[in-house]
Amino acid sequence: MIGSLLSIFIFPGFLFLMVFGLSAEFIDRKLYARLQNRVGPPWFQPVADLIKLFSKEDIIPEEANPAMFKAMPILALTATITSFFYIPTWRNEALYHFNGDLIIVLYLLTLPTLSYFLGGWYSTSLFSKIGAVRTLTQLFAYEVPLLMSILAPALLADTWSLTEMAVFYSAHPWYWLFNILGFFVALITLLGKLEKVPFDIPEAETEIVAGTFTEYSGRLLGLFRLSMDIELIVGASLLAAVYMPFGLAISPIFAFILFLIKVLSIVAMVSVLRTVFARLRIDQMVNFCWRYLAPFSFLQILIILALKGFLVR
């Protein structure tokens, strides 16, 4: 009992994810700045931002639905934290696992997006509503390529559990190389999930101010910000667990350090990608996802099916 409470609140739960999420945000911001030939923020900036937001007043618009308005940031945060428990970090085995937890993780990662939509919709501001609708439109565009590209490694391992996938790839250490195409598709769709350039359409500041978060302030905005940071971590760890499942079986400390390196390198890739593109329009984004990403993830599945036929068994 105490053990599971400890793992929920301290490690690898809330506290660890908060620290890791904030440091990932710092790395993302610092790298973004350095890539743009700027100095960038000091290391404590994300913490300072969070403390500032938490010490401020929450303002809830009169027209908004207060219950939904308040519930959505908490839903987003809990969903992202929960999904992390199914991802293997320091050994092949995740904290909790059962056959099908891959689907659960993907489902739990959809919940924050849904809460951005509902939070925006119930705050009733025009900018929030446009942002909310854009969030949902974008979800329909990137979710299918993401799911299909994550399906491929699972198909190769013949399981729906991240833990069992890790076991499989430990037994066959070089098989992750077959999924490299899927990794790039998933990385691009991750940009859409995290609402970063070129897919930051739902919160395009020059068009709709801050999209969903226009009316949010104080602690509620702080929770949303925190959940986005943790979503970055969880998304990157999911990609690391699915596409880079090597080195987990050696020793816990080594595996954990390797896990951190993997996640941070994916975060770095996200920062580089968001530096070199302009924001797309929503129609162009949907078009791009269905016309290019979906076929590529489908191709990845075909490759895996072909391989399974004559290579693996």
Binding site: V197, D200, A204, T206, T275, V276, A278, R279
Partner: peptide
């Protein structure tokens, strides 16, 4: 157009 790198 959201291309802040060009701005910088």
């Amino acid at each position: 157009v959201g291309f802040d790198t060009l701005l910088m």
